[in-house]
Write a protein that binds this DNA or RNA. Structure first.
Lengths: 103, 103
DNA sequence: ATCATATGACGGATTTTTCCGACATGTCAA
DNA sequence: TTGACATGTCGGAAAAATCCGTCATATGAT
């Protein structure tokens, strides 16, 4: 399900691509200048992100502008939420558990 | 920095391990029954999670109980936060942008 | 039509991940 | 001590990811 989203985010370069897109849509050639990578390598990273629907591209003249699809990252947030409850419960009640757990 | 956390979460089996640990600490032998994997494969997944400090293990008799280190997942949350702002801004103001972006 | 530019996709090499069986260590019980 | 059990680690095989150069396609300019 969200397997693709998580594994896409498992790569440093792809996370940086997403961060760059925070400032607005960017073309492939604009992005490639930010990385010590060939254009084809970057193009494949974009394909992974596209496949996970984390980005989409819009034709713009003879280039393609990539932009974020922010909703996808909500999946991460949703997966995270049971853990957030976990650590909230942890901090509120059971401080004495800690001393025994940390050696 | 949090590279290890993200790439640890890039694997389905490791995410499931974390989910199982939500119910409480578990031994390796208890965990291995939940997966179609050899014990050594699972042990290596646990090593990756341990290395990312997403879990810790406590000796308990002749077994080791693995438990979550919830704080680590906050790093994901923090990385996500600029994107949350992004999509919040998106939804609030610029609905007319949408029509041009989605083809 | 022709040429330059921007990009995606392919083929193949290298590296990394994932997995397993086997071995080593450490704990508990008899 | 000896034996059973739980676990970590190692060596190596198989699979997947990453990267590059090259080719194919599409758009825009001349």
């Amino acid at each position: 399900m969200s397997q693709e989203v998580f594994s896409a985010l498992g790569n440093q370069t792809r996370r940086e691509i997403l961060s760059h897109l925070l400032t607005g849509p960017l073309s492939v050639s604009a992005l490639v200048e930010e990385f010590p990578l060939s254009r084809s390598a970057l193009s494949e990273h974009l394909a992974v992100l596209r496949n996970a629907d984390l980005v989409r591209d819009v034709p713009h003249g003879q280039q393609r502008l990539y932009h974020l699809v922010p909703d996808r990252l909500r999946e991460i947030d949703e997966w995270l939420s049971p853990f957030e409850s976990y650590w909230r419960d942890r901090l509120s009640g059971l401080r004495d558990m800690r001393e025994t757990e940390e050696q």
